[in-house]
Design a protein around this nucleic acid. Structure first.
Lengths: 123, 123
DNA sequence: TCATTATATAAGCAAATGCTTAAATAAATT
DNA sequence: AATTTATTTAAGCATTTGCTTATATAATGA
């Protein structure tokens, strides 16, 4: 890939470009972290799971399978990704695993939930 | 797919399951819309583009290509998705197309930007 | 201990994603 | 009119994603 390292537009504002690069560099950790959360929540099934956990407190894979009309393994795999990312956690009660949101783990998500619950125009 | 239509757990709270289904049904439009926005913003390149547009007002594909060190067609294809979704719009000035955020199109995104700019702990 | 139940994991596969390179538009310049 | 520049579009391809089915693990109960 022979990438042009510089915009050849005569009007290109080099100071702006430098500033932008610096902005990204400064926020790269946040961008990376938030990007992962958004990618997880950007799947409709996972968004529903997160939304329901926010509303109901805790639910088990079997519940989600029933509510979302999906197989348990499909649910389980979505849950795993969110657990790996630290968004949700589990509590065992006998054979049943109850999942819940890890509070304070994502203010971004909480902002989304409040919007969803208010049923506001979101986009 | 022979899907069990009901959780067989003895402890399954049928009222809760019904309530959850209803919750999703009520919010299905919002969930769908917000899900699409999150899926778009859940790509690191697109998140950076949106973030920079929020900060700088407007930028052209050539700028992004330079800043993000990616080919112009790669940028252009990301831009197209966001334009199709109504998140961004363009203004032509000669050969150059300046892209900018469609204001008020996603409060969710605006919430994310403010968090990114404050460089707060996001997740 | 053996079967049942709840969940997780693994392997396989089709569809979606995100890049690449090449070609097409559109506007400006010569 | 021909060339250059900015951008888009298209085709191709490797990677990722999200399901499926089959199997493994863990806890309960007969």
């Amino acid at each position: 890939m022979a990438l042009e390292l510089s915009c050849t537009r005569a009007e290109a504002d080099q100071k702006q470009l430098t500033r932008c690069r610096e902005t990204l560099r400064m926020s790269s950790n946040s961008i990376n972290t938030i990007g992962k959360v958004l990618a997880l929540a950007g799947n409709e099934t996972r968004l529903k799971i997160l939304f329901l956990l926010n509303k109901e407190g805790e639910l088990c894979p079997c519940d989600f399978s029933d509510i979302l009309e999906m197989t348990v393994p499909a649910i389980s795999q979505h849950i795993r990704k969110m657990k790996d990312a630290g968004l949700i956690t589990s509590r065992r009660e006998g054979q049943t695993l109850y999942y819940s949101l890890v509070k304070g783990q994502s203010e971004v998500l909480e902002g989304i939930f409040s919007r969803l619950q208010e049923n506001k125009k979101v986009a």
